[in-house]
Structures are given as structure tokens and as C-alpha cells.
Amino acid sequence: MQKVNYNTISSVILIIVAGIAIWETRGLSEMSYVFPRTIEIILLILSIAYCLKSFIRPTTNSLFEGIDKRKVLVMSLAMIGYVILISLLGFLIASIIFLGSLTWYLQRDNHEKSSKTKIVHVSISAVGVSVFFFVLFRYVFLVPLPSGLLLG
């Protein structure tokens, strides 16, 4: 990220995306391709302009400057993990685990409370929030929330 400008990288990605999208319109009838293909060509031209600009006037700062990358990474992984857990364990249990563990992680710098108190608070809130909304949606709004492959 230091040597290569992030604008150059994103413009190259955009050019590739536009290229693939144009390729995907092959075999469609005129009424299906006329709109997307027009947009893709415009996108391709804009991306090339963006690419050129990134060389002519390179930005000096790097992506994610001044951001606590570790926290962001943990948060992102937690969300991805949450989705996978839902598909395995079902909505309710996955939510309790996600809410509990993420809240626990975010409180790790907080030294005011003893860890025992933290565990109790975290568990209560995780179980309470999950169960409340599960019941609300399942029985009041009649939205069946996802069940997992392993557990109901």
C-alpha cells in the first residue's frame, strides 16, 4: 500500500469489473443488453480516466490511514463469522454468541469493572436482546428467522 497508490489499485479493479460485466452481456438479446452495456462502457471510460489521474496526480496518503486496523479487522471477521454461524446454528444461538463475544471484545479496554461483572452484564444483554427480538419477529411480525443446518 505504500509504493502503489490505492487509487491506481482501485481503478484497475474497476476496469476489470467493467470488462467482466461487458463480457457477461454476450448472448443476451438487444433489449436485455442495451442498458447495462452502455453503462459498462461509460464505467470503463471513467475508470481509465481515474487510472490516468492516479498516475498524474498521485495521492500521498495511504488507505486506512490513522485507523485502528486491528479493531476493524476483528469487527469485519466477527460479522462474517456471524453469518456463517447463522447458517450452521440458526439465528438465535448465533446471535447470542455474536453479541456476547463482540461486546466482550469491545470492553476489553474497560478496566473499571471486574471481569466477573463484565461477563454477567455481557451475557444478560446478549441473551436478552437476542431473545426479545427473536420473539418479536417470530411471533409478532410472523417473520420466520433463519434456522441452521446443524440446529433448528
Binding site: 440458526g90 438465535l92 444461538i93 447470542i96 441473551v127 431473545v131 434456522s147 440446529l151 433448528g152
Partner: peptide, 12 residues
């Protein structure tokens, strides 16, 4: 909650 969930799995 776990017991409830397990019951749900059975009934389904």
C-alpha cells in the same frame, strides 16, 4: 433457550 431451540429442531 437451547432446550427450546432443540425442541424446535425436533418438531420441524
Amino acid at each position: 433457550v437451547l432446550v427450546l431451540a432443540a425442541c424446535g429442531a425436533d418438531a420441524g
